[in-house]
Design a protein around this nucleic acid. Structure first.
Lengths: 171, 171
DNA sequence: TTAAAACTATCTACCGGTAGATAGGTAGGT
DNA sequence: ACCTACCTATCTACCGGTAGATAGTTTTAA
């Protein structure tokens, strides 16, 4: 089950996720999060000792939430590809932001190890899940790559239609 | 033709490209570049007035170089898909880094406008070139998305084989 | 021809501001 | 009494950017 945090810690995680998805690991600060949440930066340190602790927690949370969403969707829709396309599409359209782990992943080699590990775990979990859905490993890697790339192009052009176009060939 | 810079400015661009590809727009500083190049940070400002000026120049250079490489490769190999796969593969294997414009693109909405514009231009140029090679727009968007995503996954897993696996289905 | 003016490329020294992180204190609940 | 969750205050290190000086080179013009 998902690790529990109190109200302030939860608000910090939500704020941090948004800021990382917008500006990457180097694009958020304790002070900015503190202001958003309504506390002082020292209080953010009380809940998360270091920046890497916070980012790693955010990434783990993101992965857990994403994988639960996939499992839920699989209860209603048997076509694996449709489930995954919709999951990424929702992350793009509802949040208007990139996948958290894609943002972190592009700068993977400059991240603290704990954050790097959590980022990689997202992709490991995703590939495991795809493989267990009856796809070959090659198909899984191809689908996941295309989905992340489609999100990127769609965000850059600010057009959801680009995402839809990119993933059309996955079906 | 490509804009000319003197030796120091060229070294600054090379250094900045490497640092941005490793840590994103917020992951490089005038001081770090200055140290690498062997001058003081004030001298970097002499060649590039602001951080966004430098990043925009780096992105424009990257795009020009990439598109020239595609044109060159098309002289020897007629299969468009092979040309593009090899171009991305080389950027990944030889540099061991992500595509510059993918790194910048993931945080697109938090970039200075000039950098955002240059980043988008890379993808516009790429799609134009693909479209002019006899592919449909849907095919072009799909290929470019998959290539960027394949680079990302390959980098995260530190395995070139992941790239090869992801793009196998493009052929 | 040569002296003055302008330009290039760098330096040192500094600005206000922000970064992550820490020490130590306080109010309220159990 | 202790623990939780905050606070104020502070630290060192670094950020992007600017001012002003300097030495060497090039252009201008008497």
């Amino acid at each position: 089950m998902m690790e529990q945090f109190n109200q302030t810690a939860e608000a910090i995680i939500v704020s941090a996720e948004r800021l990382i998805r917008e500006g990457g690991y180097n694009g958020f600060s304790f002070r900015e999060i503190a202001t958003e949440v309504g506390v002082k930066s020292a209080s953010v340190h009380y809940h998360f000792a270091t920046k890497s602790d916070l980012a790693a927690t955010v990434a783990r949370r993101y992965t857990e939430r994403f994988m639960v969403a996939i499992d839920d969707a699989m209860k209603c829709e048997t076509n694996v590809r449709i489930v995954w396309i919709n999951a990424f599409r929702r992350a793009l359209v509802e949040d208007g932001k990139m996948c958290l782990c894609a943002v972190l992943g592009t700068t993977s080699n400059s991240l603290p190890v704990s954050v790097q590990t959590e980022t990689r775990r997202f992709f490991e979990c995703a590939l495991d899940k795809l493989n267990l859905s009856g796809l070959t490993e090659t198909q899984s890697v191809h689908i996941l790559s295309t989905l992340e790339g489609a999100m990127l192009l769609s965000l850059i052009f600010s057009k959801t239609s680009v995402f839809d176009q990119a993933v059309k060939e996955l079906m």
